[in-house]
Amino acid sequence: MTNISLTDFMEFVTKTGPTKYTKVKQIKSRDKYHPALDFWKPLRDAIIEFHTEEKNRTHFDNLLQSLSDKNKVKSYPELVNRYKSFLGRKTIKWFTPPKGEWKHNDLRIKLNPELGLTINDKKFAIKLYFKSEQLSQMKVDLIILLLNEKLKKPKDVNFAVLDVKHKKFFSSTKLTESHLSLLEGEALSFMQVWMGF
């Protein structure tokens, strides 16, 4: 089986022509994942800890003060402020979000919303997005479609994507299970290019 992240797969799906080939080549030539090389891991972990350990907002200040990587020092403060803004005065409680995978033939996609938050009495399993590039509606729709259709979830949990940098919270899609056939075709295309390297 070939394992890739949901983000990588969606970037492949939304590219066209030769850029699809380039994306697969980039994924295949990338070094094996290591937490130390994950640029967003400290921020992602800090957000999860904030909720799971019911910390106050100075928790984020401690994170920023601990940074030594100049790129994180430059990028993180704005995202921390945007996340605090998202929190606002909402009443929020943590629950463990569902996780799983989507498989088609030899391709396996990890489905792992980082946050499980009850926001004002409504449950959301949330995928975090930190990159500067704004999420397209197509990419959001496909992510939520996969999360909705392939994770075993309680009926009262809604799947969502939070674009932290742009303070956009997406929690619905017009796509239905019938659109999964499009993703199955993309999975076959991905593997055909992958096996060509």
Rank of each mutant, 00 (worst) to 15 (best):
D69S: 15
D69I: 02
N71E: 15
N71T: 10
N71M: 14
N71Y: 03
K72G: 10
K72W: 11
K72I: 04
V73F: 04
V73A: 12
V73P: 06
K74W: 10
S75D: 15
P77A: 08
P77G: 12
L79Y: 06
V80N: 07
V80Q: 09
N81E: 14
N81L: 06
Y83S: 02
Y83L: 05
K84L: 15
K84F: 07
K84R: 15
S85Q: 13
F86I: 07
L87P: 00
L87Y: 01
L87H: 05
R89V: 02
K90T: 08
K90A: 13
K90M: 10
T91P: 06
W94A: 04
T96N: 14
T96V: 11
T96Y: 14
P98S: 11
G100W: 04
G100H: 00
G100M: 04
E101I: 07
E101L: 08
W102A: 00
W102M: 06
W102H: 01
W102E: 01
W102R: 02
K103W: 07
K103M: 11
K103E: 14
H104D: 09
N105F: 09
D106Q: 12
D106F: 10
L107K: 09
L107H: 06
R108C: 14
R108S: 11
R108I: 04
I109V: 11
I109C: 09
K110A: 11
K110L: 05
N112F: 03
N112H: 09
N112K: 12
P113A: 07
P113G: 07
P113H: 03
E114L: 00
E114G: 03
L115H: 00
G116H: 01
G116F: 05
T118H: 00
I119A: 08
I119S: 09
N120A: 06
N120Y: 09
D121Y: 13
K122M: 12
K122P: 00
K123Y: 03
F124P: 00
A125N: 02
A125D: 06
I126M: 01
I126F: 00
K127N: 08
K127P: 03
K127A: 03
L128C: 11
Y129G: 05
Y129V: 05
Y129M: 01
F130A: 12
F130M: 07
F130L: 06
K131V: 00
K131Q: 13
K131S: 13
E133M: 05
Q134M: 10
L135C: 08
S136G: 04
Q137S: 12
Q137V: 09
M138V: 11
M138L: 14
K139V: 09
V140W: 00
V140P: 07
D141A: 12
D141I: 03
L142W: 13
I143P: 10
I143G: 01
I143C: 05
